[in-house]
Amino acid sequence: MQPIISISGVTKTYATGFTALKEINLDIRRGEIFALLGPNGAGKTTLISIVCGIVNRSSGTVTVDGHDINRDYRAARSLIGLVPQELTIDAFESVWATVNYSRGLFGKPADKAFVEKVLRDLSLWDKKDAKAITLSGGMKRRLMIAKALSHEPRILFLDEPTAGVDVELRQDMWAMVRRLREDGVTIILTTHYIEEAEAMADRVGVINRGEIVLVEDKAELMRKLGRKRLILELRSPLDAIPDAFSHYALELSPDGGQLTYTYDNQSERPGVASLIRELEAAGIHFRDMDTENSSLEEIFVNLVRKQA
């Protein structure tokens, strides 16, 4: 199936000479929840801003549902709702006026019933006549979301949606994201909270220093998460793994001095004990052993550190 967003060869160098993005290639699948992870300053917001038309890119192409974001910007942009990281609202407008304004701005005819539904869903209906400036931080965040949803987007960008947000709003927000996904809306969220990506996303991408360093199904990552590795430092190097051990998921280091066994530590019989017994019986001795967990956090930190 054609990806709903296709980013290819996108770079961004600011006038100051700072390169925010280097050759980004990324496809977002229709209807998925995609989490873009990365440390501060990695380029997450710049990338989103380019796709949404807020920032001009230096090179590359972006298509949204097949529409080029420059040539066919109307079609591309009307599909997208954006909730930016900063709470930036015209402070003196009422909730009702500002949400209706957003709907109009995106070319949709007025629909009071729909706007009312959006406000009710976000527990904002009671505040509809309040000026934005009088709202609490959490309510302002809800208002930003309401503005983004007011024009019935097919793609929703949430830039750091839960930064500084209380537990109740966070739960409401995730419930909303799931509901939207059931309606077929594609959701792209950026975060530096790894648990958030783990809890919500179908796929995870990691961006660091303007480069995408990993894109993977979350299920695959979770599989890795639930995995443990047993590392055996061998007394004498092996040329190859003996056939008798082919039913174990073993890997031999290039120099033959290290054997790595990856196993599922959730299983009843992880096979560690039997492997060690069988190795001893086969005359393969080791002088040290170590086990390690792989977590998304660890993968993330390693990827980020490797680049530094």
Binding site: A75, R77, L82, S102
Partner: peptide, 11 residues
């Protein structure tokens, strides 16, 4: 105030 993002991202 930054709310120009909406205008720039609108069709």
């Amino acid at each position: 105030v930054g709310s120009i993002y909406e205008l720039l991202s609108a069709p």
